[in-house]
Every structure is written in C-alpha cells, then in structure tokens.
C-alpha cells in the first residue's frame, strides 16, 4: 500500500523534500514506515533513540499524535498521511 509522508522544519532538509509517497507492505505499522524512511545512519540518528522516537520528534497520523494511538505499533491503512516534525514552541 502507499501512504503519504510529510516533513516539517529541519526534517525537510534531512529527508530532502516536503513530502513523498511511500510504499509499505500490507499490515505495516508507523514504526515500519519510519524504518523504511531512515535509510541512512544520519536519518536514523535524527529520528530514533534506541527502539523509540527521540524526545523532540513528533509523529502524527492523520492529524493525531501517534503517542495517543498505539505509538510506533499503530497500524497503517492505504492513503494514510504521516507527518514528521520537531517539537515546536510558541503560543
């Protein structure tokens, strides 16, 4: 299946674009998709600390933070949109 991944702020430079379509296997999870994306050591280092996400990385699936779903184990469906951005501040 194909999902869309969108990048924000510094992640645009890291992943070389604003968004891309990503092919993942049936039954793939958020963690699987991110593993496919992180095809270099630098990319892996920026997103992951061990098996989990780094503290300042926020990943959202269709507008909901994956932390509030099932984390990296959240299953994907065709046409889903994954957004990857750094923690932001403001108000």
């Amino acid at each position: 299946m194909t999902i869309e991944v969108r990048f924000f702020a510094a992640f645009r430079d890291l992943f070389g674009g604003r968004s891309r379509d990503l092919a993942v296997g049936e039954g793939a999870t958020v963690g699987d998709a991110l593993a496919v994306l992180c095809d270099t050591a630098a990319r892996r280092r920026e997103l992951f600390a061990g098996a989990g996400l780094r503290a300042h990385v926020v990943v959202m699936l269709n507008g909901a933070p994956v932390g509030a779903l099932r984390g990296l184990a959240t299953p994907l469906a065709p046409g889903d949109t994954l957004a990857v951005f750094p923690l932001l501040g403001g108000g």
């Binding site: 510094a10 300042h56 501040g89 403001g90």
Partner: peptide
C-alpha cells in the same frame, strides 16, 4: 525547543503544525 528550535523558527514555526 529552548535550545534551538525557538531561535530557528520563532513562534511562527507553529503555523504549519496548527494547520495540520
């Protein structure tokens, strides 16, 4: 956030996220 991100993008860095 306080180390770098606010300096890089300021509060307007939120615009795209809040839209998302």
């Amino acid at each position: 956030v306080t180390k770098r991100l606010m300096r890089d993008l300021g509060t307007a860095g939120l615009v795209e996220l809040i839209n998302l």
